[in-house]
Structure formats: structure tokens, C-alpha cells
Computed example of a mutant assay.
Amino acid sequence: MGDGSKKKAHVEKIKKAFKNRNWNEIKSADSWVIFKVMSEFVEGFEKLAKIGPCVSIFGSARTQPDHKYYQMAEEIAAKLVRHGYGVITGGGPGIMEAGNKGARSENGKSVGLNIDLPFEQNNNIYIDPEKLINFDYFFVRKVMFVRYSQGFIVMPGGFGTLDEMFEALTLIQTNKIEKFPIVLVGKDYWGGLVDWLQEVLVKEKNINAEDMKLFHLVETESEAVAVIDDFYDQYKLSPNF
């Protein structure tokens, strides 16, 4: 097959994939999605409306229990409970499991916002049964994290962790939500990213120098919890929206 024939076949394939649907097909598909999204929002609001002040802990689902970051997340969660907070995680294994485990160890509120994924993600056993919520849509789940968290603890993680962190930073930077503390734990892990933000984004004037104060980089469990405590020594606890 020549290049011209290949290009024509490719164009036809695209046209077929995006062929016009009739109005009934569009209404049926869109209505189902709308109601599914609404149901996830309703369940989230109902289950989380009365949980009280909580801090979300983010990090990799792949971190094993013998890893130092797993153990740090577990201790941070326990300390948060001892300081009067509940703990919210993404509900899965790894750092998320550590956060729920630490909260459970101190008889604190242990919330899991689980996402249905084809790999990696099954809810862990340390979530309070009535505080486990399963989501199909990442964007609905992210609203729940931001709406019901009084702070973010960001442990080492991958794309999902970065997504949650930068979502919150963007919303705070643009004044779409009230400011709350965002804490990055692990200078060896996050230091390169922080340097890049300072040396590239600030230098290119794509963010302001003041935006670097929207988060804190710490090394220890005690420092992480102290950032949360110090913030609420200055500002009252209140909903983010």
C-alpha cells in the first residue's frame, strides 16, 4: 500500500471513529454519565459532611510496608490523630494503607476515597467501613479531597500524587479555595522538583516567587505535623469551599 493509500485509509478510520450519532444516542449516553457523576457527588457529600477536621495523606500505591516512607506515613497519621485530626487517603495500598493504618492505630477517623482502576488499586483494610467511598471518576474524587481536607501531606509518589498536589496548589493560587497547608515530605525525593520550580518556573515568570510559599518541604514526621498545627494556630479551621 502506497503512502497516499495509507493516508486515505487513516483519514477514513478517523471519520468512522467520530461518525455522527443521532440525538437519541447522544442523550442516552450523556444522561447516564451525568447521573453517575451526580450519584458519586451525593454519596461523597453525605458520607463526608460530618467527619470533622481531617488531613489527607498522598503517596505511591507501590510503597512496601518495610520502606521508610511507608513507616513515616504511618507515624505521621498517628501523630495527626493525636493532635485532633482525622486522616483521609486514596484508600489503596502503599502510602495510602500506611496513612489509614496509622489513623486506626490511634482510634482516629480513617477515611478512604478509593478509585476503580484496572491495576494496583484495591481498598486497604484499615479504613472505617462507613467511611469507604468508591469512585469511577478522578475529578469527583479530587473534589472530595480538596473540599474535606484541612491540609495535604504529600509523601513520595508518582503521577497521581503530583496530580493531587498541583491541583490543590492551582486552586489556592487562583483563590478558588481557601488556603490550607500543603506539606511535601522527603527532601531527597522532592528537592529536585522544588529546585526546578524555583530555577525555571519562577525565573521564567510563569509563577510568582510568592507562590513558592504555598507549600512546605520537610524531612521528618514531627516537622510535617508541626506545619499543620502552626497553620491552624494562626487561622481558624473552616471549610475550604
Results as ranks from 00 to 15, higher is better:
K27I: 14
K27Y: 10
K27S: 04
S28K: 13
S28G: 14
S28C: 14
A29P: 00
D30M: 05
S31I: 14
S31P: 05
S31E: 15
W32N: 07
W32M: 12
W32C: 13
W32P: 00
V33L: 13
V33Y: 09
I34W: 13
K36G: 03
K36L: 06
K36Q: 13
K36R: 15
M38A: 14
S39T: 10
S39R: 13
S39K: 14
S39I: 02
S39E: 14
E40L: 07
F41I: 10
F41K: 00
V42Y: 13
E43G: 01
E43A: 12
E43T: 11
G44Y: 09
G44Q: 11
G44N: 13
G44A: 12
F45L: 13
E46R: 15
K47M: 12
K47P: 09
K47Y: 08
K47T: 05
L48D: 06
K50H: 15
I51Y: 09
G52L: 12
P53S: 04
P53W: 11
C54H: 10
C54Y: 07
V55P: 04
V55F: 04
S56I: 09
I57N: 07
F58R: 05
G59W: 06
S60R: 08
S60W: 11
S60Q: 10
S60V: 11
A61M: 10
R62W: 11
R62I: 04
R62T: 07
Q64V: 12
P65G: 09
P65L: 02
D66V: 01
H67T: 03
K68V: 09
K68E: 13
K68F: 12
K68H: 12
Y69I: 08
Y69A: 07
Y70A: 11
Q71N: 13
Q71A: 02
Q71C: 03
Q71I: 13
M72R: 09
M72N: 08
M72S: 11
A73F: 05
E75M: 05
E75D: 08
E75V: 04
E75H: 08
I76C: 08
I76A: 04
A77I: 06
A77M: 08
A77Y: 03
A77D: 06
A77R: 06
A78S: 14
A78Q: 02
A78L: 04
K79C: 03
K79I: 10
K79D: 10
L80G: 03
L80D: 01
L80E: 04
V81I: 03
V81T: 07
V81C: 05
R82D: 13
H83K: 11
H83M: 09
G84L: 06
G84M: 07
Y85T: 01
G86C: 02
G86V: 01
G86A: 02
G86R: 04
G86M: 01
V87T: 02
V87S: 01
V87K: 01
I88M: 11
I88Y: 05
I88N: 03
T89S: 06
G90Q: 00
G90H: 02
G90R: 01
G92Q: 04
G92V: 00
G92C: 06
P93S: 06
P93E: 00
P93K: 04
G94C: 02
G94K: 02
I95C: 03
